[in-house]
Amino acid sequence: MTHTEIDGVVATTETMSMPMLSSYGHFTAMQVRGGRARGIGLHLARLDGATRELYGQGLDKALVRERMRHALASAGVSDASLRVYVHWPHGDERVTLTVTVREPFEEAPRPVRLLSVPYVRDFPHIKHLGSFGQSRALTLASRAGYDEALLVAPDGTVTEGAVTNAAFWDGERVVWPDAPCLLGTVQAMLEPLLPSVRRRVTLAGLGGYRAAFVTNSRGISPVVGIDAVGYDVDTALMASVTSAHDSVDWDVI
């Protein structure tokens, strides 16, 4: 099931033609439960900041929330995987908001294995639509039997996962890679709640960490391997990370 609305109107084949053919845009993704989502302020700030950078204008945050509520109501659901896309179709006075509503992601967290792939996203701080490189990295990882790709710069600096943020545990602190990457909303929630530090992480130095995990809007998963480097699941660490995430309030959309 996918319910799609463009500017508050159910999408048709004709109105979908512009979003489908344009890669100059950005989006945010979230899990909704009971008409609520964690970190709504972070999602709205992400959309507003990218809209200002790409199109030179701000975004009406109240309107975004209204469009999300309308799409959920029209789909007849209160639990969903929801995305908001922002385009500026023809240099009009205002941007176009596309909201998609799909089934909620319910899969329980499971240990994952990552394959390092040499790739750095263009304009990585923006959650933009130019995802060919990420998709290719994911394909390479999947074909090799891995769950996710770990993106690595030419100098060996670890940046982020293809669709996740990666974090490493040195025994005392959660180390978030200090590199050009997208600040995920889950990372933004967790970073101030955990003993965190941002530090350069290198592919060659991965064996020096005791554990690792990845985060995105779908949740948090322990990492049990990156290439030939293996990690044990640190149950105490994962309990702390999960508890911190669960402590974040669900905001009414």
Rank of each mutant, 00 (worst) to 15 (best):
G133H: 11
V112C: 10
T202N: 00
R198C: 06
V163M: 13
T159C: 15
L140R: 14
L194F: 02
Q187R: 13
V233D: 06
V174C: 12
L129D: 00
T202G: 07
A204S: 15
V174S: 10
F105P: 04
R143H: 04
I220N: 11
R218G: 12
P124I: 10
V112I: 15
S116K: 06
E106R: 14
D155Y: 02
G145T: 03
L114M: 05
V174I: 15
F123H: 08
F105M: 12
T139G: 02
E106M: 08
A166N: 07
V101D: 02
V120K: 02
G208F: 02
R110N: 01
P192I: 06
A166P: 12
E191I: 07
P124F: 10
P180Q: 09
V163R: 08
R94L: 11
P124Q: 13
S221W: 15
L206T: 07
D155A: 02
L206Y: 04
V95A: 04
A228V: 14
P111N: 05
E103R: 14
R199T: 11
P192R: 01
V112E: 07
G145D: 08
V175R: 13
L151M: 13
R102E: 15
V152H: 13
F105Y: 14
A212I: 03
R121Q: 09
L182P: 01
R210K: 13
V152C: 14
R200Y: 00
R94M: 05
W176F: 05
I226N: 07
V186M: 07
V152P: 14
F123W: 13
T100R: 09
A153T: 08
Q187Y: 00
L150C: 15
A188P: 05
E160M: 06
R121E: 09
R113A: 05
G161L: 07
P177Y: 04
V224L: 03
S116Q: 11
A141H: 01
L206K: 05
A137D: 13
R200I: 14
P192E: 01
L206V: 11
V99I: 11
S131Q: 15
P124M: 08
L193V: 04
L183P: 06
G207I: 09
G171K: 08
P177R: 01
R143N: 03
G205Q: 09
T159Y: 09
D232T: 14
P124G: 14
A167I: 03
S142I: 00
P109Y: 01
W169Y: 04
Y231S: 08
L203S: 05
S196D: 03
R136A: 14
V223W: 06
S131A: 14
P222C: 04
R218H: 10
I226K: 03
S116W: 05
Y119Q: 10
G145H: 05
V101F: 07
